[in-house]
Amino acid sequence: VPQRAWTVEQLRSEQLPKKDIIKFLQEHGSDSFLAEHKLLGNIKNVAKTANKDHLVTAYNHLFETKRFK
């Protein structure tokens, strides 16, 4: 089981690129989880459509539901 890579403050910070969060989610989330949160596909394309709040919610949801690969 992966550990949380970032704190809530870090997740919301401008310093953390959306692409980093997407990469983490794609590496650790199950396909059904990723599909549900519309996070499947090319990281660049996902970054265009997903806002930061959406990614933070998905990140927290992944750990709450433990839907890891």
Rank of each mutant, 00 (worst) to 15 (best):
Q3L: 10
T57R: 10
W6T: 03
T7V: 04
K23G: 10
F24I: 02
T57L: 13
R4T: 05
F68P: 03
E14Y: 09
Q3F: 09
K19T: 14
D31K: 10
V8C: 12
H54E: 11
H28V: 08
L62R: 00
V1H: 13
K38I: 04
S30L: 06
H54N: 12
L39T: 01
D31V: 11
Y59W: 03
L34M: 04
E36S: 08
S30M: 07
H54I: 09
Y59P: 00
N45H: 15
A58K: 02
G29I: 01
K48E: 15
V56W: 04
I43E: 07
H61A: 13
S32Y: 08
K19H: 12
D31Q: 12
R12S: 08
K48H: 13
V56I: 15
I22D: 00
D53T: 08
L62F: 04
K38Q: 14
H54P: 02
V56P: 00
K52T: 05
L62K: 00
H37S: 04
W6K: 00
K44F: 12
V56L: 04
E14R: 14
P2A: 05
I21D: 00
P17L: 12
L40P: 01
P17F: 10
H28Y: 12
N42P: 15
T65F: 14
L16N: 03
L55P: 00
T57Q: 12
W6A: 03
G41F: 03
K19F: 10
V1C: 13
F68R: 01
A58F: 05
V1S: 09
N51E: 12
P17V: 10
Q3R: 09
K23E: 14
Q26N: 04
R12N: 11
N45W: 15
K23D: 06
E36M: 10
V56C: 06
S32E: 15
S30T: 11
P2E: 04
H54R: 13
I21G: 00
K69C: 07
L39M: 07
Q10E: 12
Q15I: 06
N42Y: 13
L39N: 00
F63A: 01
H54A: 13
Y59F: 04
Q15W: 11
F24V: 04
K48C: 10
L34Q: 04
K18E: 08
T49V: 10
A47N: 11
Q3H: 14
F68D: 02
R67I: 05
F33S: 00
K38E: 11
N45C: 15
A35F: 14
A5G: 11
E27V: 07
N60D: 11
E36D: 11
H54C: 10
K18A: 13
V56K: 02
Q15T: 11
L40V: 12
E36L: 09
T65A: 12
S32V: 08
L16T: 10
F24A: 05
P2R: 04
I21C: 02
P17K: 14
L39Q: 00
T49C: 13
A5F: 12
